[in-house]
Design a protein around this nucleic acid. Structure first.
Lengths: 340, 340
DNA sequence: TTGTATGCGTTATCAC
DNA sequence: GTGATAACGCATACAA
């Protein structure tokens, strides 16, 4: 790879001049600019990032550590980062690496990025607190409540609350829950918060929570199908699934049992995944603001890098209930129903 | 951020000793190792990547430039990279950036990564040829035939050929094609290669290609539905969709028209996406070896970085026809049927 | 406007 | 076994 030295020699100038042509061309005479530029072109030269970052002690790079594939969030993050002259690189961390206590980050990226966004990449971990002292961090989606780490996420409990309340408003009273069976080490996972929302909605409506109406199962459409079948046999007139896949499975179960949707049974999912738009009738669901989540996370992170953010913030973004035919007859296009 | 200087001072040794403790502890006396290690711990020190990379002129980092979300490929790439002590960072390039001729890569990552994998991230581009001279590149999925750039991909034409041949083998003769309408600037896209496979399979079976049996449409399940309806009105007894979404839409259309599947109409998709497993009956489809694609790409790239690869290679991975109920009665679990 | 010289943090070579 | 020190490629303060 050619270096700034090679360019300087080829153009017959000093390396300082080459550097100026790259970073502040206005301060260099026109003919030298031209000579240097053609030398750069000739040699196919590009500044070495390590050298530049070392000298600048900044990388203009943000790291996104993901525990899941999250293209909407990434899209938003890219957009916001590009606007401020930052770039984003993403990496995926599996549970073992996360369990190693974010040393993952330290060993690999220290000094190579200006800050990091952690997407659903957290387990309770004392090392994280330490990490937050040394490098700007924003938590995304799920997060731990640490003194130094901001977060941006959806209020999962409120989202589930709204979903179940919608079922109640359509007159349902025996509302079943299909939820993820417990995963070890996930004390505060999304599905637990969604479960809390379900319980609170019933409680606020004065309806007792029956354990036999709560079905815990591994993930997937098929398990949703079996769970739904069971709940419907138990005379459920409404079902809330903590994932769209669960709700979709339950919807198929209701149809095969010959029940009319939404009259005999109303069904609500959450996340507005592709599957919720496939069914007929469409699946009522809750949409999170993922694109915006990426944007906000990046903006908060850059603020923090610039030292403009004094205190930590925990931001909750709006969610939207999308009402479709699985709860209201005729509503098959997911018109907006409410935001929070 | 603490530096090696800080550690040296804290431990009362030279920076050289600190470096040795990090990189070759065996050459340092035990008590100094202990002192240095505790200083490192104390200060929460991690080597700065820019400094290290600059000095080593290597980063042990591979870049993956993606034009789409491709978690299986990424998973395979991560696994293979980790095994050889490399890490992977991913970035997403939209069409505009790609059109800028990979200057994207140069401006952002030169000297920050040892090589790059381009996933479906290519358009015809003379700059790519230039880039391949200066940095190791492996193309993935779709690729251009360049003198210096290897590739790993699926033989899309053969995959489509096998899919259509399977329909022929089940006795179908009026086989319709649902394909993507032309996107400007995509001369050699996957759907065009799949279309070629469709035509070749019919030709080899001595069946003339009828333009009215080829339906071009924008993407999405709904468009597949409309296309399928049209083809079925035209008495198609088989349908091949260049995406699973098309085939799924066609399957729903056939069901709503009261046609029996697979007796009256057989349907095949491609890619084995989640949607192909949702339908009832299951959708016969073709599965690509995406995980392996990531692995092979990484291994080839590292070979190239090490200078062990003398000539460029174009590798094609096996694909598999998964036969489900949409073409053979009773086969709803996608048993393997053939590989290539 | 231009060139010289310094230092960013690290590893490795060389003496001791 | 250990410590100075040079060098990696670059941006910039300073001198000219």
């Amino acid at each position: 790879m050619p270096t700034i030295q090679d360019v300087a020699k080829a153009a017959g100038v000093s390396i300082a001049t080459v550097s100026r042509v790259i970073n502040s061309p206005a301060t260099v005479s026109v003919d030298k600019v031209k000579r240097v530029k053609s030398a750069i072109d000739e040699l196919n030269y590009y500044p070495n990032s390590s050298g530049r970052n070392l000298r600048r002690s900044a990388t203009k790079t943000l790291l996104m550590i993901c525990a899941a594939t999250i293209s909407d969030v990434l899209d938003g993050a890219y957009e916001a980062a590009a606007r401020q002259g930052y770039r984003i690189v993403a990496t995926y961390a599996d549970r073992r690496q996360l369990a190693k206590g974010m040393s993952y980050f330290n060993e690999l990226f220290m000094g190579n990025v200006d800050g990091a966004i952690l997407f659903s990449a957290l387990r309770s971990d004392e090392n994280l607190a330490k990490l937050c002292q040394t490098v700007p961090i924003v938590q995304c989606s799920s997060f731990l409540d640490l003194p130094n780490a901001s977060s941006v996420s959806t209020d999962e409990e409120a989202a589930a609350y709204d979903a179940v309340t919608h079922l109640l408003e359509t007159g349902k009273r025996r509302i079943g829950l299909i939820t993820q069976e417990n995963l070890p080490g996930a004390e505060d996972s999304y599905y637990i918060r969604r479960e809390r929302g379900y319980c609170r909605a019933l409680a606020d409506a004065g309806i007792p929570i029956r354990q036999e109406m709560i079905f815990r199962t591994p993930g997937g459409v098929k398990n949703g199908y079996y769970a739904g079948k069971q709940l419907l046999k138990d005379k459920a007139d409404g079902i809330f699934g903590v994932q769209d896949t669960f709700a979709y499975g339950a919807l198929v179960a209701a149809q095969r049992m010959g029940l009319s949707i939404p009259e005999q049974v109303g069904i609500v999912g959450i996340d507005n995944t592709g599957i919720s738009q496939l069914s007929d009738p469409g699946l009522t669901t809750v949409q999170q603001s993922f694109y915006e989540m990426g944007q906000v996370a990046v903006n908060m992170l850059i603020e923090q890098i610039r030292g403009e953010m004094d205190v930590k913030r925990n931001v909750y973004l709006q969610h939207r209930l999308l009402v479709r035919g699985s709860t209201v007859r005729g509503r098959s296009d997911g018109e907006e129903e409410g935001a929070r």
